[in-house]
Amino acid sequence: MAKNAAPFSAVWFFWIGFLFCDVACAHTGSGSVNGFLSGLAHPVLGLDHIVAMVAVGLWGAWLGAPAIWLLPVVFPMVMAVGGVLGIFKVPVPGVEILIAASGVVLGASVLTAFRPPLWVAAAMVGLFAVFHGYAHGAELPGAQSPVGYCVGFVLATGMIHLSGIGMGLLKRVKRGEWMIRSLGAGIAVTGTLFLFGVL
């Protein structure tokens, strides 16, 4: 296993470099690249989005299998449904409030080690995903390259979930549970600050 690790990493490093070499070297400013990068940046630069998505990964890792993979599968698919609502400008009330609330609820779930039935966890994550998707979708038609934007923001969302899952694996180390709960507390506090308009 250890023997395979280095070549595997090297191959992935090569492909990631290959994907971005055109962007880095040519700085062409072409539409699809800019659309992809702005889609990639949107979830990463929006703190309200990022804390909720990290919380999804953290909570999934905390709950263990099958939630560890079910929640990150549910989130992008339901988020796309929210995105469709945003693209068609379907009026959805309280989007920003519920995005902030998602940080509070999901962070608190990690903090309190809340273990609901799997379908309840999936439904909670799915509900919040709709509002996150709506916010992204509303910006899609105005993007320079909507297709690139779609690909970018779905990939970024997935990567943030994976980072949350990676942090959730801390539970295997000494005091890992304490660290995960602290992260949950931080997410809940951040969500609360967004909820009251402090951030």
Binding site: W69, P72, V73, P76, M77, M79, A80, V81, G83, V84, I87, F88, G137, L140, P141, P146, V147, C150, V151, V154, L155, G158
Partner: peptide, 16 residues
């Protein structure tokens, strides 16, 4: 998981 991402991208592109 990769398939779910592709499904999400496909749905958004369809909506667009």
């Amino acid at each position: 998981v990769a398939a779910s991402w592709i499904a999400a991208i496909g749905l958004l592109m369809l909506a667009l």
